[in-house]
Write a protein that binds this DNA or RNA. Structure first.
Lengths: 207, 207, 207, 207
DNA sequence: GATGAATGAGATTTCATTCAT
DNA sequence: AATGAATGAAATCTCATTCAT
């Protein structure tokens, strides 16, 4: 309830001020991670008083959680959108489109992406113990649905161990997006995606 | 040369003291990562004077690099050993054994493993810009050799795109070991490994 | 701009607190010079928290520069005042008055004087490479004007090498003031000044 | 007696080692002054054990005093030599030669010169309270003799106030040498010396 | 005589948070 | 609601000196 009130307080600010604060916070957390991020730098770069920031967000931790929530909302939106858009595609085409949409998302939201990747790979944030499983469950559930669709349409092997298949796709997808993020999209994404999906489809064994 | 002298200085210490310092440092870096790791805590937990630690390692950064080097040596040893031991095995058997050996390594060296995983996934360490590619090259080269062996023996598809295959195996392997590390080996590793390799072998498509 | 803000921050303090901080800083820098001066001692002697001092002045260096600026302003004021007051005097009378006014200045501002002398003679301060020439130019320009006045009024030798004359007067003046400062004004300033000026006037040669 | 023993201990070292230590010490004190000079850097740069340096010189302070004594001996030698060499010259010629010899000394011994100038102008060394008057007395006595010679030969005004004349010459001489030292001898020393001496000789007044 | 490991005080600076105005 | 002064703990690192070997 208190928290609610605080956010109300933040939400009542002028959009311009809200944006300055969000920009500064996203920048800070994406560049430094949670622990090293500095509230001092946030207020300096947002051009507000130090006390004000603590009026809107009681603690550094709660500011972070707010920012993290934003990043998560964005990711969820993207996942939902791309799922809907590819409803009619066959499984492997759909997978390709999902991966390429991820690359595009990273290009459009580099700093939010960085926060998202940090959450996936570090443990220095508040609630990180709860966040990581939450994220894994999110992408796991998502891929499970896609795979189930593929099975239902007779595009995937009926005897597939779904849990392991999800694991493989999730691992490769995340790593691919991370590399794409780190390399600042200089790789040929389309070619990579096609090659990876071909291997998923056919396996590696000699035929 | 100066560096050499410093390490000499550390190496001249009694093995007991060396171990106390290494234990404390590994613990600190594995629990907190580079930036948050505290030299104060290291000296407290090693039971030495603050000045002494800085006599052995000029800076926090150089202590970290030393510890990182240790972790890397251990990983390299393990990789070499398991490759030699599995020379005669067919590709997918070999892959299974490598993965299971990784799980065993993590059980035996939980803190070094954590440092290794940190290096793979964070960017807050000195030289991390150089370290990550170095590690990727290490595991990439390793897997390339294993795959090439498999192709030479007609166990793998001759038309495989090796680079992408390495990418897939590396992603899944790392993620699997990371999960195994995080879950403290409570999962059924053998079952997982078999299932994952079966999918690698056969692919996901309906037949 | 940031600097501006910081000074604002300091200027907003109560005059009493400002003075305690200035007193403590001037004392510290005048007694120890820049490098040995200790921010710890400053906060202790000013009776403020360590963090506070760094709120007002980001760094030791910027505190020093502020204090140095104060000293410089005081010196410039004194120079301007005494020049105006002695407009009508003949050259050597004027010179005497300037020197005696310097002695008085030192008596009134012993610690600022010490900082000023430190800047003239040491190289351990930030920007000291730029400061020394700045100070030399200040006193050089000043003396040049005085001398030029003397020449215009036919009180000084028309063939004087002005640059060298400035050099001589500057050297002796500074040394005289420094000695006066070190001896805590126990010498007979008036007598010294008269004697020195007589030699300047007549030279040393046998006539 | 203890001190004596220590120096004996230092003097018994091989000339090579002595020189390495002296070089390192002179470098350190000339670059940093007494307080900032670091015994650690001295041993590093001399390539000896830390304990050894403290065997030869009990304390940082006594090392400094030894080095300072060296610088002083060098200066005294130079003063004696140039005085003897110019016995036959008339006063103002002699003065010119003394000044130019000073410039040459600085060129030959830049680091000892720096230590000497530091002693003249800073107060951060042990015994600096006693050292400064000692140095002033040294150069004062020296100039007094030279001036007295000039008076005896009827080259200088018999009514000169010797004390003040010494003061003027000492001030200008020191400042001139300091500037020469700082400018790394890029000024035209001969021209400066002649001009300065001409003014000393004739005075500044309109004739 | 030579060595260098050991020490702990002290240096500057950053930090999240509080609270009176 | 907004402000920014105040705080002291904690960070990394340097230092001259001692002393057992």
């Amino acid at each position: 309830m208190k928290e609610q009130q605080l956010l109300k307080s933040f939400n009542r600010l002028s959009p311009d001020k809200q944006n300055r604060i969000l920009d500064a916070s996203i920048k800070e957390f994406s560049e430094h991670g949670y622990q090293i991020a500095s509230m001092n730098r946030v207020v300096d770069s947002a051009g507000i008083a130090k006390g004000s920031l603590f009026n809107y967000f009681n603690t550094k931790s709660s500011l972070f959680i707010y920012i993290y929530g934003l990043a998560l909302e964005n990711v969820k939106d993207y996942l939902r959108t791309v799922k809907d858009k590819t409803k009619e595609d066959s499984f492997f085409i759909r997978l390709e489109k999902i991966m390429l949409a991820g690359v595009a998302f990273i290009q459009d939201h580099p700093r939010l992406s960085r926060i998202y990747f940090r959450m996936l790979y570090t443990t220095d944030s508040p609630h990180s113990k709860e966040i990581l499983p939450e994220l894994r469950k999110l992408s796991g559930g998502y891929l499970t649905e896609i795979i189930q669709d593929g099975i239902n349409r007779n595009e995937l092997d009926k005897n597939l161990d779904i849990e392991k298949t999800v694991f493989i796709l999730d691992s490769v997808l995340n790593r691919f997006l991370k590399v794409s993020h780190e390399s600042q999209n200089t790789i040929n994404a389309k070619h990579w995606v096609e090659s990876l999906c071909r291997i998923f489809k056919n396996g590696m064994a000699y035929k």
